[in-house]
Amino acid sequence: MPIGFEDGSIDEFAMAIPDGAKVAIPADYAGVSMAATRALIRRRVKNLHLVGVPTSGLQAELLIGAGCVKTFESSALTLGEYGPAPRFTKAVREGTIQLVDATCPAIHAGLQASQKGIPFMPLRGILGSDVLKNHPGWKVIQNPFANNKDPIVAIPAIQPDIALFHAPLADREGNVWIGRKRELVNMSHAAKTAFVTVDAISETSLFETEEKAAGVLPALYVGKICVAPNGSWPLPFWNGAEVDDAHMRRYMEMAKSDTGFQNYLDQFVMQESVPA
């Protein structure tokens, strides 16, 4: 058995994510490990390079606010209907994080290139945008197969150190069920390894039926698993919880000021007084 996860706590899990790591994180709709996010803040991780696949939300907002992030690479940071992300907005205004602003398909394409072990992936669109002008890695090349002028953008491979996300189930062999959230597979294939929190452990193999197997990320790609029931809280989870609306509103209220945000961290992260 490749992975020992039965007795590992979420804090031990987070200790294995080193300072300076390049960590791929999914958008809110694909399963965000907020449990691991809080543990990362508790362990005072530094200089993370976050890759939001293709966007991020509260997860990046908290890590940025807590001073854990050096570089934020993504297509957006959004808290949706709750409004502008206060800590992110402040960090951008004050220039305390390095931004690598992309566009959604370019994040997917960069990961795809890494999955395939190739240096870049060409992508349509993007030409003439200020996103292209400001991106440190993208290059415009001529389509080598065209007779006429045909510029196309080359997106270099993005290889994260770790893909970090929350999923419903893992089995005892370390296989993870991701349903139809194929971006989690892409992230994990592209990254050196995947760290996954799960709601529960399946006592039977996830390969037992083809229906289940179709949505499995094989243990080959998985480095660490930790059981964290409701681990996406307060964010919604595609296989379970709705967003904790009252908590999100409370966050928005508290994170308006530096002191309020510190109080939020003390109350909900450092002490992990998480309501069931």
Binding site: A76, T89, V92
Partner: peptide, 27 residues
């Protein structure tokens, strides 16, 4: 413009970001 008002990168206010617009608008 989905990025923010003022001079990038120190936009004020910063908005969420470009999402897929830089691609989908072409296609």
């Amino acid at each position: 413009n989905l990025m923010g008002r003022g001079d990038y990168p120190s936009s004020n206010p910063r908005w969420p970001g470009t999402f897929g617009s830089a691609y989908l608008y072409f296609l």
